[in-house]
């Protein structure tokens, strides 16, 4: 809101005494140079590099040789790629389906003013502090059929071979991801809910709308952009659940949790096939970009403008 108010006079001012203001503004460009340097060298160059490396053969130590389209043909013909792709999307979709309703409800809940809710919120956010490695190690111990939660709670159905059965391992991965990341998205929704003008609820109350109606007709529509922000972070983030799955299951049992990021790592740094691993990396980048663009489009217009309208 303030940005619309402030751009107008700034533009006028620029016209009023354009020479000095213009110089000042041009000089400002230099301030971006350090950030641009790091970003170009360690993000943009590697991005181009990964595309180039996908057309080479390299074992990670020796010389790099040209390989033409070989890596692409071999990876695209490899059923392992489609397994990894399928798993990546499966985990992405289920993570979204599990995390979004929970985060949304908890966000609305913790946005309330009651003291005990603030106290609960402090505890909710504990998982934010843990590294994926720590979370994975903790859950491995927790799910031990004999000395873990199943025995502790006296719930025999929890005593499964969680890491040994493909569909159980997949379910476990989705659950642990939710455990780790719901707090972060709860925080985003909490912020979103707090920005909804209270006058909307007052008006709805006067109109006699019930609480459920208020939730669906005010809270949800008002949170549209928050939902898009959270979903974008969730979906693009799900491409990078590498560490958690690596420590928790290592991609197993078999290849049943070998998502793309893990597939890339294992091909590149375990099988020493950097070329094919780079092909997987390029596919990851493309998926990330396409998803982000799709979600942007879903939001309609650019984020800045639409958010202003939301207020």
């Amino acid at each position: 809101m303030t940005s619309t108010l402030s751009t107008a006079p700034r533009a006028q001012l620029g016209r009023a005494d354009s020479a000095p203001a213009g110089q000042r503004k041009a000089a400002l460009a230099w301030l971006t140079v350090p950030a641009l340097f790091f970003f170009l060298v360690f993000a943009v160059v590697p991005l181009a590099g990964v595309l180039i490396l996908s057309f080479t053969s390299w074992d990670g130590i020796g010389a790099i040789g040209a390989a033409g389209m070989d890596n692409w043909f071999s990876v695209l013909a490899d059923p392992g790629l489609y397994n990894a792709l399928g798993l990546t999307f499966l985990i992405m979709i289920f993570s979204w389906l599990v995390q979004t309703p929970i985060s949304l409800l908890l966000g609305v809940f913790t946005a309330g003013s009651q003291r005990y809710r603030a106290a609960l919120a402090v505890l909710y956010f504990l998982p934010l502090l843990l590294s994926s490695a720590a979370v994975a190690i903790a859950f491995k111990a927790l799910l031990d059929p004999n000395f873990g939660l199943a025995t502790g709670l006296g719930l025999p159905f929890l005593a499964q071979d969680w890491l040994g059965v493909p569909h159980l391992a997949l379910g476990l991965v989705i659950f642990v991801i939710a455990w780790q990341f719901v707090p972060f998205h709860t925080l985003i929704y909490q912020g979103g809910v707090r920005q909804i003008p209270k006058s909307l609820y007052e008006a709805a109350q006067i109109d006699g709308a019930g609480t459920v109606k208020q939730f669906f007709h005010i809270t949800l529509p008002q949170l549209k952009y928050t939902i898009i922000t959270s979903s974008t972070l969730m979906v693009v983030g799900s491409l990078t659940y590498f560490d958690l799955i690596f420590v928790l299951t290592g991609g197993g049992p078999g290849n049943s949790t070998r998502i793309l990021a893990l597939d890339m790592y294992l091909r590149g740094f375990r099988a020493n096939l950097m070329g094919p691993a780079s092909v997987i990396a390029v596919i990851l980048v493309i998926i990330g970009l396409v998803l982000a663009l799709l979600l942007q489009r879903l939001g309609g217009k650019d984020k800045q403008g639409s958010q202003l309208e939301g207020l």
């Binding site: 993000a43 590697p46 490396l53 693009v236 790592y265 590149g268």
Partner: peptide, 19 residues
């Protein structure tokens, strides 16, 4: 920079290793 947000930067690990 905004585009950098959409890119899973982990995917650049192999060229980073090389560099």
């Amino acid at each position: 920079f905004l585009m950098g947000l959409a890119i899973p930067l982990q995917a650049t690990i192999i060229p980073i290793y090389l560099m």
